[in-house]
Design a protein around this nucleic acid. Sequence first.
DNA 1: GTAAGCGGTTACGTTGAGGTAAGGAGATCA
DNA 2: TGATCTCCTTACCTCAACGTAACCGCTTAC
Lengths: 126, 126
Amino acid sequence: MKRLPDDDCGFASALNVIGGKWKTDILWEINVAPRRFGELRRILAGVSEKVLAQQLREMEADDLIRREVFPGKVQRVEYSATEFGRSLNHAVGVMADWGKGYEIRMAQKAEEQAEEQAERSIALSA
Amino acid sequence: MKRLPDDDCGFASALNVIGGKWKTDILWEINVAPRRFGELRRILAGVSEKVLAQQLREMEADDLIRREVFPGKVQRVEYSATEFGRSLNHAVGVMADWGKGYEIRMAQKAEEQAEEQAERSIALSA
DNA sequence: GTAAGCGGTTACGTTGAGGTAAGGAGATCA
DNA sequence: TGATCTCCTTACCTCAACGTAACCGCTTAC
């Protein structure tokens, strides 16, 4: 996601924070429960270690998530959502609901076009 | 904005629709009042004709805006927001509000860090 | 006749987010 | 001693969004 120049409306800022390809998924997963690095790798199938580490660090810098290193026999790092992160998750939810509506609308549109296509084929063959 | 694969949550779909660099601005302007192509060019200082035309066409295909050609002596094309477009504008507004909060928070954080820096300088020079 | 405004389109170059693959430090296991 | 697990880092590459600049048909104004 390109870091847009901050415009007057705040939306660009929000996109700068959450626009990364995996960030909404990361935030969602961490919001469900604190997650470890390797756990996230497994859950978010397809993300590379490089990008995961990178986006986690950016989200930490933006106060969306908290990184905690637990002392123990093996290295253990846990990421959890901050209150601020949860507040963003809510705003993302509103957009996601709209996205759902869009998907349904576009599916209907595609269906209608398929029907029209079918009708044209019948008219043509008659 | 890269067209992301549609995930389960709908957010990616929403981003695919509104993620273009100028689309929120376009939607906002058109929501205020119907606008002509040249008008948008002037209002959105910095957008190129190519990208403006491209994003307008994508937004039209997504039913966010309506393109109307008015017959007359000079060519006249008007873009206006659809009801669906207005509904997206609302969801964008929620994200924008969050973005505003983020900006304020980060400004405060930067201020605090500047203060700490100043204190360190004083301690060092003493 | 030519300049200028409208609403574009086209070819080409740039840039940066994300992907790939490899390495690496510290600890445990066999 | 080497293999394996964890949590990363680094160098390099790819690809699509965006920018630049030129051109287009149409019309009116000078």
